[in-house]
Simulated assay, not measured.
Amino acid sequence: MRIVVTTPTGTVGSRVLRLLVQAGVRPVALLRDPARLPPDLAGLVEPVVADQTDADAVVGTTLGADRLYWVNPPGPPGTDPLAHHAACAAAVAEAVRRNGIGATVVQSSGGAELRRGVGDIDGLAATEQALDATGAPVLHLRCGYFMSNLLHAADELAGGTLSTPWPPDHPLPWVAPGDIAAVAAARLLGPAWSGRLVQAVHGPADLAFHDAAAVLTEVLGHPVRAVPLGSRAFREILAGAGMTPAEVDAVAGMAEGLAAPGYVPEQRRDAVSTTPTTLRSWAAEHLRAPEPA
């Protein structure tokens, strides 16, 4: 099969790329800078340069593709996130229609089923809808909260706090990016399907931030406590970091929408949506300092 992988140097895409290589596939890596691909993959993947907001470029680089793994990449700083999502959605839908791509796996998010009112996730919802309108086989992976978001808080964790825009007792499905990649690769390599499918990727357990802080306390060996920021304070922090109002709305809106009273993910936790990597094992690998030699 000819399988095209977008964001092949990203948190999830890079693992999808390796899994396909290990399965004997020579995937097409659609990216902006081929120099970012790991040197050990030279000759094992086909790098193709394209901007995912450029419909003509995406159509050209996916010509002959049997399957496609699609992730909307982040836009440049200062870009309106929802406008960027819309451009990506138009490009991938056009490519699927014109090239007759047999199956597309989309990295989406829990909350996309709401269609609006969830900040940046609204852009993923629009991408789902654009692909649904093609009538081609598509699978939307509705992912939970990435454990890797904690990497951005490494300095704060070292000081014993974990700030969060969510109420500290609000549960979320925490998932390891590697588990998302495993599900995506399995679907890309697996049997064909018809029509539209949705599959959640929920990780092994729903955790509130105070639960996560307790796990991190054990792993890091010092007390960590969850610190709720509140919506207004979180927005002020984002604006103070130089984000535009549209960017602030996109980021803060995700937390506000997913914490809305009564919201629960459309897909239940079951054997299909539950993945194995625990926060404890992920944190031990990625956050704990290595033992001295």
Rank of each mutant, 00 (worst) to 15 (best):
Gly10Ser: 10
Gly10Asn: 13
Gly10Arg: 11
Gly10Lys: 10
Thr11Pro: 00
Gly13Glu: 08
Arg15His: 04
Leu19Asp: 06
Ala23His: 06
Gly24Ala: 07
Gly24Pro: 05
Leu30Ala: 15
Asp33Trp: 08
Asp33His: 14
Asp40His: 13
Leu41Thr: 06
Gly43Cys: 03
Gly43Tyr: 06
Leu44Tyr: 02
Ala57Ser: 11
Asp66Ala: 15
Leu68Asp: 04
Tyr69Ser: 02
Pro77Glu: 04
Pro77Arg: 14
Pro77Gln: 10
Ala86Glu: 11
Ala86Asp: 14
Ala90Val: 08
Ala93Leu: 03
Ala93Met: 07
Glu94Trp: 00
Val96Ile: 10
Val96Lys: 05
Gly100Val: 13
Val105Gly: 07
Ser109Pro: 03
Gly110Ala: 07
Leu114Val: 13
Gly119Cys: 08
Gly119Phe: 01
Leu131Trp: 13
Ala136Thr: 12
Leu141Asp: 10
Tyr145Lys: 13
His152Lys: 07
Ala154Glu: 13
Glu156Trp: 06
Ala158Leu: 01
Ala158Trp: 02
Gly160Gln: 08
Ser163His: 08
Thr164Met: 01
Pro165Arg: 04
Trp166Phe: 13
Pro167Ser: 07
Trp174Val: 03
Ala176Leu: 05
Asp179Gly: 12
Pro191Thr: 08
Trp193His: 15
Gly195Ile: 06
Gly195Tyr: 07
Gln199Lys: 03
Pro204Ile: 08
Asp206Pro: 02
Phe209His: 15
His210Asn: 12
Asp211Glu: 14
Ala213Met: 02
Ala213His: 03
Ala213Leu: 07
Gly221Arg: 13
Gly221Asn: 14
His222Asn: 10
His222Tyr: 07
Pro223Lys: 10
Val227Asp: 05
Val227Arg: 13
Pro228Cys: 14
Phe234Val: 08
Glu236Arg: 15
Gly240Asp: 05
Met243Ile: 00
Met243Phe: 09
Asp249Lys: 00
Ala250Phe: 04
Ala252Cys: 04
Gly253Lys: 09
Ala255Cys: 07
Glu256Val: 09
Gly262Trp: 03
Asp270Pro: 14
Asp270Glu: 06
Ser273Asp: 06
Pro276His: 09
Thr277Ile: 04
Thr277Gln: 11
Leu279Met: 12
Ser281Val: 14
Glu285Trp: 00
His286Glu: 14
His286Phe: 12
Pro292Asp: 03
